[in-house]
Computed example of a mutant assay.
Amino acid sequence: MTGTRKVQRSSGGVYDLGLHEVCGPKYRRPILGGRVAVRLDELIRQKVDEKGWEIVALEVMPDHVRLFVKHDPKSSASCAANQFKGFTSRVLQAEFPHLKSRMPTLWSSYFAASVGAVSTATVEKYINTQWERAGKKEKGDAS
């Protein structure tokens, strides 16, 4: 979604709400690689579809997740983060028992910022170029 502004309409108004969220596993452990990363990506997309939101950019890194999502005005940043964290934690720990045995709580706190002070394109580019930054391993290296 680069270039022109895309607004959503509801019965009560018009909105364009973007949220940049970062969530990391407890102690920022690099456990989000391989099959876990693939499944986490699927689960986040499933939750976004369920809520009727839109993913602008999503990257699952070994030790954190960056998400730029467009959401409805009824959903706060904390609501969105908790939707992702609670749902993905339950499913991932059920499907990957080693996650539960290593860490009873999968996620630590989150960072959320509304996208408005910088352009949508800037946030999207920042998230999409995570793997190009110095010192980063290749995408999918961690297991």
Rank of each mutant, 00 (worst) to 15 (best):
K51Q: 09
W107Y: 12
F68K: 01
S11Q: 14
G116L: 07
G24R: 14
L99E: 01
K139L: 14
G140K: 05
A77S: 08
L17F: 09
E42P: 00
G18I: 09
K51N: 12
A80H: 02
V56D: 12
W131D: 02
T2M: 06
Y110Q: 08
P104E: 12
A80P: 02
L19S: 11
I44R: 04
Q93Y: 06
W131A: 05
R35H: 03
R39E: 14
R35Q: 12
E132W: 07
E54M: 00
P62N: 00
V7A: 01
V38D: 06
V69P: 00
A37F: 02
M1W: 08
R29Y: 06
V36W: 00
E124F: 02
L32W: 02
S114N: 10
S109E: 13
V7H: 09
A81F: 03
K125D: 09
R5T: 15
K70H: 10
T122H: 04
Y126G: 06
K85C: 12
E138L: 13
T105F: 14
D72R: 11
E95G: 01
I31V: 15
V36H: 00
V56Q: 13
Q83G: 08
W131T: 04
G34K: 03
T120E: 15
E42V: 11
V36D: 00
K26F: 14
Q93E: 13
D141G: 01
V60W: 04
K70E: 15
S75K: 09
F84K: 02
V123H: 02
R9V: 15
Q46I: 08
A117N: 06
L58V: 05
D72K: 13
T2F: 09
T88V: 04
P97C: 06
R102C: 04
S76L: 07
M61K: 00
L92M: 14
H71D: 12
A112Y: 08
L67A: 02
D49F: 00
F68V: 11
V22Q: 01
D49S: 10
K51F: 02
P73Q: 10
G12P: 00
E42A: 14
V7L: 10
E21A: 13
Q130Y: 04
R29T: 03
G135R: 06
S11E: 15
F87H: 15
E138T: 01
Q8M: 06
V69M: 10
R9M: 08
Q130D: 07
P97M: 05
I31T: 02
A134T: 05
W131R: 15
T88K: 04
C23V: 13
A37K: 01
V123R: 00
P73T: 05
A142W: 07
G116C: 05
A112N: 06
S108P: 11
Y126H: 08
K74S: 09
L17N: 11
A57W: 02
R29F: 03
S75Y: 10
G33L: 00
E21Q: 15
E50C: 00
V115R: 10
A117F: 06
V123F: 00
H64N: 04
H71G: 11
D16N: 14
S11C: 05
F84T: 10
E124A: 10
Y126L: 01
G86V: 05
K136A: 07
V38Y: 01
S109Y: 11
T88W: 03
F84L: 14
V7E: 05
A134Y: 11
T4L: 10
A113W: 01
G86Y: 13
R66K: 08
L43W: 12
V65E: 03
G135H: 03
